[in-house]
């Protein structure tokens, strides 16, 4: 299964990014082959709708699940339309979260926030 995590740098030793839409990189991780690929997030400098664009990038990379600390409602709508599952990360460590997912210990992200839309946030 291919999963995606917003990350602060293009390294597996980096940390989970607090923002989904404006994360600098996405880690695409294959839980079977254990392959890692890092994608630049071209939505990072968007004037608006960063979550929508980031979600479009995720959908286009054909992943099955997103692991993230938080997600806005517009991005969640895109991801839902593409049947991508949203899991809530447990801490900032990328490996801990991948292990937790493999062990079935990650819970689904339920608290979708209404978005920041220029009013703070990341």
């Amino acid at each position: 299964m291919k999963i995606v995590i917003p990350v602060d740098d293009n390294s597996i030793d980096s940390s989970v990014c607090q923002s989904f839409g404006r994360t600098p990189y996405f880690l695409i991780y294959d839980t079977e082959s254990k392959n890692s690929v890092f994608l630049d997030n071209s939505a990072v400098a968007s004037q608006g709708g960063a979550g929508i664009k980031a979600a479009q990038i995720i959908v286009d990379s054909k992943v099955s699940a997103l692991l993230t600390p938080q997600c806005g409602e517009n991005a969640a709508e895109v991801l839902k339309a593409a049947n991508i599952k949203l899991y809530k990360t447990i801490n900032a460590c990328i490996k801990d979260n991948i292990d937790a997912l493999n062990d079935g210990k990650l819970s689904l992200l339920e608290d979708i926030h209404p978005g920041f839309h220029g009013h703070g946030g990341n």
């Binding site: 968007s46 004037q47 608006g48 709708g49 960063a50 959908v59 339309a81």
Partner: peptide
Amino acid sequence: CVDFCKFNALAYIINKLIVFDDV
């Protein structure tokens, strides 16, 4: 349309265009 929109008000998901009116 998706590529043009600077405000990312459009997304194309599984053969379907989604328009975000508020954006």
